[in-house]
Each structure stands twice: as structure tokens, then as C-alpha cells.
């Protein structure tokens, strides 16, 4: 319980820092911190594979790409408050955040006190168990996700295809 509270405070702090930080690199860093804290949460819940996968995929790959782009784009620029193009976005965002939070809190209050349905089977959340799920009953979802990622990769290749030799050079590429 103490561990949960410490982690929850940390996770909330990092999540807030993502939104509040002035500089995009600081936001990205806070997001990395959040991802790592989430991984520790999974560890507490005995989901060792999920914790490792979370760090490898999100902190190790996706956030590195984020930072890659952000560091390149913000290099040598001074911090300045850009004018917001959507005038009401802060208000709308706050409203949506409060709505989402209220829904979550409502669900939590409603479910609190109900015991979980039995104990998790041994090995639950481990490597073997995840593998059996992903390649067994959940295989269609895995295949669909793979298809989606393949589409994205193909799209990138098509967009970056070099012009055939002799073709007129287009402006603005």
C-alpha cells in the first residue's frame, strides 16, 4: 500500500509535469519518467513481462523517437510562448480532463469493496502465459496490429520513394 501511494504520487507528478513543462524536451522527459513509474506498477502487480516490455517499447524506442524529433526541432531556439491558434483549447482541455477524471473516480467508487474474481493463476503475466495468449486466442488482434503497422511502414516507404530517373523535379519536396 505504501509502495502504491508513493508510485501513484510519482506517476501523477510526472503526468502533470508533461502538461505543465514549458519546454517540449522537459515534457518528453517527464513522459519517460511516467512510463518508467508505470512499469514499476506492473512489477508490483507481478506482471514482470509487461513491465519489461513497457520500458523496452515505450521508454526505449518510442520516447527516443520523440526526443529525436523534439531535440532536432527545438535546437537553438529560445523559449517563447507561441500564440495559441485555438483560443478555447485550455478551457476545453480542462473540461474534458475533469469529465474523464470524474468518470474514472465514479467507476472506482462503484467497484471499490468488491473482491476480485478469484486469484490469478500461477504464471499469470509471465512470458509463457503472455505468449500462449498472444499466439492462441488473441492471435487475430496481434495479426491486425501487425497489419496496421505494416501499412504505416509501407506508407512511409511510398512517401519517401525516390523519383524515377528523368522525371521532372517537383517543387517543395
Amino acid at each position: 500500500m505504501i509502495g502504491f501511494i508513493i508510485l501513484a504520487v510519482l506517476a501523477l507528478g510526472f503526468a502533470l509535469a508533461v502538461v505543465v513543462a514549458k519546454h517540449p524536451v522537459h515534457s518528453a522527459l517527464a513522459l519517460v519518467g511516467h512510463v518508467v513509474v508505470l512499469a514499476v506498477f506492473y512489477l508490483l502487480l507481478k506482471a514482470e513481462f509487461l513491465a519489461a516490455a513497457q520500458v523496452i517499447v515505450y521508454a526505449g524506442a518510442i520516447m527516443i523517437l520523440f526526443l529525436f524529433v523534439v531535440t532536432l526541432l527545438t535546437a537553438g531556439k529560445e523559449d517563447q510562448d507561441a500564440r495559441e491558434s485555438l483560443p478555447a483549447q485550455r478551457g476545453i482541455a480542462a473540461f474534458l480532463a475533469i469529465l474523464g477524471g470524474a468518470l474514472l473516480a465514479g467507476t472506482a467508487v462503484r467497484v471499490a469493496g468488491t473482491p476480485a474474481a478469484g486469484r490469478a493463476p500461477t504464471g499469470y503475466g509471465g512470458l509463457l502465459d503472455m505468449g500462449r495468449l498472444l499466439w492462441g486466442p488473441d492471435f487475430p488482434y496481434l495479426a491486425l496490429v501487425a497489419l496496421m503497422l505494416l501499412t504505416a511502414a509501407l506508407g512511409v516507404i511510398v512517401l519517401n520513394r525516390p523519383e524515377p530517373a528523368g522525371a521532372p523535379v517537383k517543387e517543395g519536396r
Binding site: V25, A59, I64
Partner: peptide, 23 residues
């Protein structure tokens, strides 16, 4: 139980030191 993945997870965090230091 997934020690190997842990090694990979931590070693993938090491790049932050380089990226952040450079930036």
C-alpha cells in the same frame, strides 16, 4: 523470470544519457 528482458530494458534507457547530454 524475464531477466534477459530486464537487461535489455535498462540498456535501452542508457541512450537517454547520451541524447539528453547532447541536447
Amino acid at each position: 523470470s524475464v531477466g534477459l528482458l530486464y537487461a535489455f530494458a535498462f540498456s535501452s534507457l542508457g541512450v537517454y544519457g547520451i541524447v539528453l547530454g547532447g541536447w
